[in-house]
Design a protein around this nucleic acid. Structure first.
Lengths: 248, 248
DNA sequence: GTTGTTTATTATGTCTGACATATCGTCCGG
DNA sequence: CCGGACGATATGTCAGACATAATAAACAAC
């Protein structure tokens, strides 16, 4: 809004894409109603039309906008967004607090994908991909007391499992996991509990994968996600957001 | 190669992105080794540097490339690609025939996502979203004899189920389904069988959803995908790809 | 007054040429 | 042998111009 061209002279297509993208996912630009023209956007964000156009191409590739010749550029409806794109996810949960439905949907998808991934990993893991999981877990153990250090290996643990499936598409869900972990980190930072509480659950997953027990890995991952979902839900519900809690 | 700037004077950032993107997913540009510079690309594809740069931004947003200042632009490794992006999928199966592993991975992910989606849809569908599924099914019945007419409502049927889950992320898998259906259409066009053979299986899914039977919808969708996977597998190739993953 | 055609407007799309900036390789001096 | 200075190079940014298409307004015809 009121941050036009003051010291914002640095430019950068990525930065502008982030700002406009955040505005779109926040609903400040809707599918009905045009966005400002390219020159106008250039003035607002302090960049030339060239840079603005490149930023718009970035957003276009992520399904956030569409341009037509004389008509102008408008935001596309949610259905068109690349929901699993890392940037889109970051923008959705980055600006302000994450909405409850967003978090719930996220957890629900994880509950579908990640247990299946754990089962696949149990069947398909190789020496190398297993080691990646083991290493991540080992570092989690070492960092069981420090929430700040715990987050990163936790993230790596889940991504390593996705990779160990050997399925290219599975690895594409890494952004989802990352987003979910990001939310979790925020909550943990507020409540300052022992981060290592979920460690045994992770250990169950690792061991099931190691002994190639697909069913067991599936169940163990489901157990972890159940616990996480309950945790997140409780804290999201209590804390932020008084709005939109009327609906089911 | 193949004489670039002859009649190719039309330009178009989207077209260039498609051409370069196809080249990358086909492996013609690897993560090791730089791509040609922007001016050189402009000469090859018959466009100005401005347009080339916009095309590169499109590819960058999809995770296919990364640029650094003096170093140049290079293709990113597969793990970074937005595998569920509609364009990336189209490019991967568009140029040349789809590779067996690609098809197998695709089917495997569908076998995870779509049954879960059917179960979710059974629980969460509304009057409107249910009607979309019913309409698609009705048109499939009418087109049971014509393979060309059958493909589109089939596609709509599966996307309608994803939408009926009420989960934004689920709808994002539509591109996957679409890609899979595209492969199936090719195969069907070669074998000219009765397209309506899978109709009863679709009907089972619809009815389970309608009566809000989540378990039944899950099982019915799994049955359909099993059949489809076997069909595709037989026709595409040789190896026994995804094992049938009996129960969950 | 309604309809069909022409014209003007406007925002995106494309092109050109220039300069800025970061980084790699090289060369030179310590 | 090592480290700092320097030039070469590809991406990044800018400015101004023209092309193109789709809309809206003005106008002609009936």
């Amino acid at each position: 809004m009121s941050t036009p061209a003051k010291r914002t002279r640095i430019g950068g297509a990525t930065r502008i894409a982030r700002e406009i993208g955040s505005a779109i996912v926040a609903g400040r630009y809707g599918p009905d109603g045009l966005m400002p023209g390219e020159i106008e956007l250039g003035r607002r964000y302090g960049a030339s039309r060239t840079v603005v156009r490149e930023a718009l191409k970035l957003l276009s590739a992520k399904g956030l906008i569409a341009s037509r010749k004389r008509t102008g550029t408008r935001a596309r409806p949610r259905e068109a967004w690349q929901m699993l794109d890392a940037d889109v996810l970051a923008w959705r949960l980055g600006n302000g607090r994450a909405e409850p439905k967003f978090v719930a949907d996220l957890m629900h998808v994880r509950a579908i994908v990640e247990p299946a991934a754990a089962a696949m990993a149990a069947r398909a893991h190789t020496r190398k991909t297993l080691k990646a999981i083991e290493d991540a877990y080992a570092e989690m153990e070492r960092a069981a007391d420090d929430a700040a250090l715990y987050a990163d290996p936790d993230r790596r643990f889940h991504k390593a499992i996705l990779s160990a499936t050997g399925n290219d598409f599975m690895a594409a869900f890494g952004a989802l996991t990352e987003a979910a972990l990001g939310i979790f980190v925020r909550i943990a930072s507020r409540h300052a509990g022992a981060p290592g509480a979920s460690l045994p659950l992770h250990r169950d997953i690792l061991e099931a994968i190691r002994r190639r027990d697909a069913e067991g890995a599936h169940a163990a991952m489901m157990a972890l996600l159940d616990r996480t979902a309950r945790n997140v839900q409780r804290n999201v519900g209590q804390r932020n957001v008084g709005r939109a809690r009327r609906k089911a």
